[in-house]
Each structure stands twice: as C-alpha cells, then as structure tokens.
Design a protein around this nucleic acid. Structure first.
Lengths: 251, 251
DNA sequence: GATTACATGATTGTCAACAATTTTCAGAGA
DNA sequence: TCTCTGAAAATTGTTGACAATCATGTAATC
C-alpha cells in the first residue's frame, strides 16, 4: 500500500512538529508514509490495515509496523479493535464538528501571533508557497495543490514559532482528510483560491483583526465542503464512498 | 516506581480524552500510571526509565512497556535517545513559554464555549470540585489540592464537550508539571484560591468577556510561578533540582 | 597524575516462533 | 433457502532469545 513518499518540505517539518524523536527510524518511516497517505486521501476510512501486509510492503518487521500503528492510533488516524485489527478512522460528524471548531480557535491564535512575530522573509516564503499552490491548481494537479494548501497552514504555524500550537494544528489538519472522505458534500462549492493570499496580506499589513476574521472565514469555507449536520449518519457504508473518490480543492 | 493510582474522576476522563482505545489494556495501564506520576510531580526531569525495571514493576512484558513509553514520548512527557533509553522530559524555557501561550488560547476558547454550552448541572459539579479543592488546601494536602486544581480545568473542558480542545488542554496540563519542576521560582507567590470560583461565576453569569479575561489572568498567575525568561538555562543540572522537591500550590 | 584503549556489563533494538482470538467457509439439518 | 455447527485459515497478541549499541570501570601509556 503506502510506499516511499516524495520528499518535500512537509515531511521534515512534520517530523519536527508531530513525530518527534525517531523512535527507531524504521518506525518513523512507516508512520510517516501512512500519515502522508492519509493526508493525500489515499486511505479510505474503514480500511483494515493488516500488520503482515504492511510489514511486507515496507520490508520491516511486524513489531515495527505495530509501533507505527500504535502511533497512528494516538493521532486518531486509525482505530484499534482489540484482537480484530486496526482500521483507518471513520470520524463521526460530531468529531468533525469538534475538529473544525478547534481549528478556528487554533488558526485564529496562530494568525494573531503571526502579526506580531513574522519576519519579512517568512512572509515572502509563504507568498511563494501560495504561488506554487495556484500553479498546481492551474496545472490541474489537484493532489499536489491540496498538499500545498495544507502546507500553507502548517508552514504559517511553523513560522510563528510556537511548537505547541504548531503541533496542535498539525494534528487537526492531518485528521481533516478523513472527515472530508467520510462526510463529503455531493456538490462541493467553488474553490477559494484567494483566501490564503488575503490572509497573508492582512498579516503583512499588521491588521490582526482582519487577519483573524479572514482566517475564521476561510475555515468556514472548508467546513462548507462537508456535511456535519446533527442528524448525519456516521458515514456512508462502503459503496457510496467509493463513488466520490475524485478529490476537490484543498485546505 | 509508579504503581496503582487512586481511582478518581480524572483517570477515566483522561482515558476518554487522551488515551483512546486501550491498545491492550496493559499498555494503557502502564501509560496512565506513568502519566499520573508526572502529574503528581513524582518523576524528576532527566530520570531514566528503564524498560526492564518498569516491566518488572508493572508485571508486564517489555513490549508493553515499550509501547507505553512510545506513547509518553508523543505527549513529550519523555524524550527518547536512540540506543540509550527514554528519560523524563526536561522542557526548555522556550517550550515552557510555548505551553503557557498555547494554554492561554486554548483555555480562552474553552471558557468562551462554556458560556454557551454549560448546563446548570455542569456548573454545580464544578463548584463542588472547587469546594473540594479548597478543603484540600485547608487540610494541607498539597498533592491532592494540586490534583484537584488540574481536575478543575480538565473537567471544565470535558463539560464543554469539544473532544479536540479537551485533548489539547489535557496534553498541556500534563506537560506543565515538568515545566514547573524544571523552572520553579525560588519564592512562589501567594496561592490564588479564588480564581477558579470567579471564573465559574462569570461563566454562570453568561459573561464571556469577563470569563475569558479571568481565565487568561489565571494562567498568568500560574506562569508567574516559574521563571521562563529568555536567558534561563535549560534547567539546573541534577543536584539543585533534588533540593526543591516539596511542591507549591496548584494549577 | 591524567588520559586513552580496551574489556565487561547493562540496556536497547530486532526478530521469529508460539498462543489466543477472530474470521471464513464448507457442510448438515430444518 | 436459510441457519446453525464446527473445522480450518488468517490475524492479532505475547514471549523469549539474540544482536547491536552504549555506559562503566580497569589497566596501560604518556
């Protein structure tokens, strides 16, 4: 299933943020491959991850796979059913709502701090990232665009320099793709390419209130792409999910 | 070292918040015992946690201990030195600052939501907790008071009902004792027994702005008990730490 | 006396075999 | 056709042994 990933700025950043000390490089490698697979929406919720299959695929021992899976479980990317196995998580609507609510607060905190702490070089780097993201969209490379879109948020958090808030945001955005897969709307609304750019403008202008409002609105746009209403079932049961596998626009 | 803990409302709550699915009950048991030991400030930063010793102490296999330690590592309660072992974390001053900053934002979010969502029964339960806390202080049971003080924050978060924010706060408050141990001020300022009560009053009165301000101020009081100035060394080197093992007042 | 080289012990990391549990599937019976 | 039973296969959980690495203490050398 998940094999070697393309090296990118996200991987090392994630290692610093979430993965921490590589408790044996092998475990870390397997963990990050699976985590990246989730980020790229390659793993459908509910899929069983069998230890031996993963061990064979990665060329490692089952014990290593087991540790990687245990770590994924802590980040709630998989659920562990005792004596049954681990399955890609299938977040409930309530969980999705909690994630978006928490994301609003965390992102608001980050932009607030960004106005105070970001250097010109940081803003320039983030602007370059937004340009890349736009190019990816224009090139129809949706997967890459989605990834760059996530990277924008993560690198903004990194630039702010608060490791705790950065790791929290990292956990949230990593769990988001599963929420999207489990609760996608049939007709996704139009993509919002300009949000990131406007947020950067507000930060660069030192307008904390506007930056904060824009970011909260941006998260609202993202939440609009899924249906998390209070009556929604936990997620469609298998078949319906496989029909909507083409991904929309990003984070 | 850490053996069975007194059962209390925190344990099950923590299991729901942070611990998640008990990937084999044994692992969860070991993890929580060690986590509780950190919360009670029984584990000095820098102490090595040897796998075999823990396995013997808990009567479990080394693999179980290994998984529990890996989990502790993700919460940054321990640091893992490859081929050397795991050691109780020794948070830097920068890490401490990040934790307090993040805590301000998270707690502010929680009280904001608390004003909207808390039922009368929730408030009554929290008031009872504050009373217990006061009694513990009056009875000079500092350890219990500290624990109840932490419980107040965690149960407030639980009552709000956002599992994501609750788990974030859980991680923060669990890491705090290590920051305190590593960067304790010589003369702790007076304890602030009334903060929790006033926060509850503001929430009960529906005054979100005041509740938020009081909570931020409260976190400021907590931060005042440690010295995290930008010139401070990572922590004193062993001997000095052992001299100041008696604990102050809580969270 | 201080320092380096080396042997010893302790600890972590890896692995494969075994046990326990669950799932699957074939077949009997209603 | 459906359901129940039970054996077989597949999967997870556990344990112990072995290898690799690091820390400790001793002896030799400058």
């Amino acid at each position: 299933m998940g094999e070697a990933e393309q090296a990118g700025s996200t991987q090392e950043g994630a290692a610093r943020r979430a993965g921490k000390a590589p408790s044996t490089e092998e475990t870390q490698r397997v963990f990050e491959s699976l985590r990246n697979a989730v980020l790229d929406q390659r793993l459908p919720p509910g899929l069983q991850l069998k230890e031996q299959a993963l061990a064979d695929a990665f060329g490692v021992n089952r014990a290593v796979v087991r540790q990687a899976l245990a770590r994924l479980e802590i980040y709630r990317l998989v659920t562990h059913a005792p004596n049954r196995g681990v399955f890609v998580a299938h977040p409930s609507a309530a969980e999705g709502r909690d994630l978006f609510t928490a994301r609003r607060y965390i992102e608001a905190a980050i932009v607030e701090l960004a106005v105070e702490r970001l250097k010109d070089a940081d803003i320039a780097r983030l602007r370059a990232l937004v340009r890349q993201e736009r190019q990816a969209y224009e090139a129809q490379d949706v997967r890459k665009a989605l990834r760059l879109s996530v990277d924008f948020h993560l690198q903004l958090a990194d630039a702010v320099g608060n490791t705790v808030l950065a790791s929290f945001l990292d956990e949230i955005v990593t769990r988001m793709p599963l929420v999207v897969l489990a609760h996608r709307r049939e007709s996704p609304p139009a993509c919002m390419l300009d949000d990131h750019e406007q947020i950067l403008d507000a930060i660069a202008a030192g307008d904390a209130g506007r930056a904060r409002a824009l970011m909260i609105e941006h998260v609202g746009h993202l939440e609009g792409r899924v249906s998390l209403d209070r009556g929604t079932q936990q997620g469609d049961s298998g078949i319906a999910r496989l029909l909507g596998l083409e991904e929309g626009c990003g984070s």
